[in-house]
Design a binder for these strands. Structure first.
Lengths: 290, 290
DNA sequence: ACTGTCATGAAAAGAAATTTTCAGCCTGCG
DNA sequence: CGCAGGCTGAAAATTTCTTTTCATGACAGT
């Protein structure tokens, strides 16, 4: 009954004040390297904590469990939840292991970003954007800033293969007006704008809106000013143990969108890709001949 | 002794052919929702698999464990590694959970890619490349293919800020010779080449080598032919539940390298960034005035 | 100093889990 | 058809784990 939705860790914390010395010692041993330390038998964890087995039994009963097996089965469920859900609660490792290699610290940060971004991301938004992108009647325009330009290009390169009517705006803003001129109502402008937001993005978005275009913005957790003009916004967690922001999670969403669009229009796309393959082949032949 | 470095899952797979009917049934039950399903008592898992407890004992002994407790303690260690290491082992996801959203399936795949890539990646390689990139006496050249061009650009954009003497080769191979002409011995050519390997990359690498340049290649698990000419190679896991390959992990390594270079030359970089900020400021003023 | 209360662990009792034994059963082969 | 060999699970035997009981000791209040 107790500890139905709360985690065992929560239960321990909330009872911590009422625990006796040996029980506190045991509780700390359990929380240290939680929840794995509670996987073994009562004998094992009693030894690890340096207390007797009756202490363990008394404590878990004090925490509201029927007995040690009951306690352990709760723990097992938690481990299961943690392991089988990849976006699971990995808050633990965050601060630990400070001296590790930059690769590992980066990996930690990225996983955290991914988890946070996904938990804050509405799948409905994602699906809506995917369906907008899939609509071949809409013209598609991509634009990014100094750093995010590469992401816009990546997105564009793929979408160009999948569907027609796609354009990449150069990161040089002087050429933007001519693109805006060509926009029709219902066209889609995909903007990448993360911090050190570029002023011109707002102007571009405003102009595009006036032409009746829909806007999708990829930005960070603080939000580009252009997001106010957007139909849909992806707020991505971009923090990294670095002087630079991380674009990894943004790229992740881009790739997922590419796949979503691709699979929703596979029949049409298949033909395009075949044709494209043929064109590449021809180009190669050209070169060999020349 | 057995199953020291191999995971329990590996051991089961490698013995699978030699297992009897009931044992196969048990093995599948264990692998399904692995490794959580093996957390309970021998009685529990026997029931879940629909076999008797002696079958369990016989099988784990056949797998090379001393007995069920031995088997289980190995499993515990794996769970521990999985949970406390964020680059956790997520080999599972593959076929399971078909009804989940593309975002989750993608996330699973990316985590798997990241883990596999990192476990196969030698930190010494990483550190060597970082130090090559940090050496300002070496000229730096970046090149990518049709898809990976965006990654080359991303890498280039950052390195250009951090250090001088950096160039991005256009993805159009016709302009490559002039870059090669300018290469000096000790210069560094960073090549991105993933499957549907581009023929020209090998020619480029060969020409660069003749000029005395060092080569670093980012490729996939199968390996670009250009990797044979490289001093260092990053083999990245790129599989995604998509018709396209994933560049997320490649970008991850790029970002980690950027940070490694940046932090190793922070004093010099700081000045450059300040100057750059000033230049951007001026550009903005220009625009406002005009 | 005495007494009651409580925490604690040793040890016994009880309850599981694990392993072993063994008989039934199927399968393949002569 | 009969038999050998191996798979399988019921049940017994063994080991281990879990819970309870109880003696000890620490400590606070009288």
């Amino acid at each position: 009954m107790t500890a139905a939705s709360k985690t065992v860790s929560d239960v321990i914390h909330s009872h911590f004040g009422k625990l006796t010395r040996a029980e506190k010692q045991l509780a700390e041993s359990l929380l240290d390297n939680y929840p794995v330390s509670g996987l073994g038998s009562i004998t094992t964890i009693a030894e690890n904590a340096g207390v007797s087995t009756p202490t363990v039994v008394r404590m878990v009963q004090k925490l509201g469990f029927k007995g040690y097996p009951d306690f352990q089965s709760h723990l097992h469920q938690e481990v299961e939840a943690t392991i089988s859900n990849p976006i699971a609660k990995h808050d633990r490792w965050a601060s630990n292991a400070p001296g590790t290699h930059i690769l590992n610290r980066f990996a930690d940060a990225i996983m955290g970003n991914l988890r946070q971004t996904l938990s804050a991301l509405d799948t409905a938004t994602f699906d809506s954007v995917a369906s907008l992108l899939s609509d071949r009647k809409r013209g598609l325009y991509f634009v990014g800033g100094r750093i995010t330009g590469a992401l816009a290009e990546y997105f564009f390169t793929h979408m160009q293969v999948i569907r027609p009517n796609t354009a990449l705006l150069s990161s040089n803003s002087s050429s933007w007006p001519q693109y805006v001129l060509n926009m029709n109502p219902g066209d889609l402008l995909v903007i990448f704008d993360i911090r050190r937001y570029e002023q011109e993005m707002v102007s571009l978005a405003t102009a595009a809106r006036k032409r009746g275009a829909e806007i999708v913005v990829f930005t960070d957790q603080w939000g580009s000013p252009a997001a106010k003009l957007a139909r849909h916004t992806f707020r991505v967690q971009i923090e990294a143990p670095s002087a630079w922001d991380s674009s990894v999670v943004t790229l992740f969403i881009v790739e997922a969108l590419i796949e979503a669009v691709q699979s929703s229009t596979w029949d049409e796309t298949k033909e395009r890709m075949k044709t494209l393959e043929g064109l590449f082949e021809q180009t190669r032949l050209f070169r060999k001949l020349s």
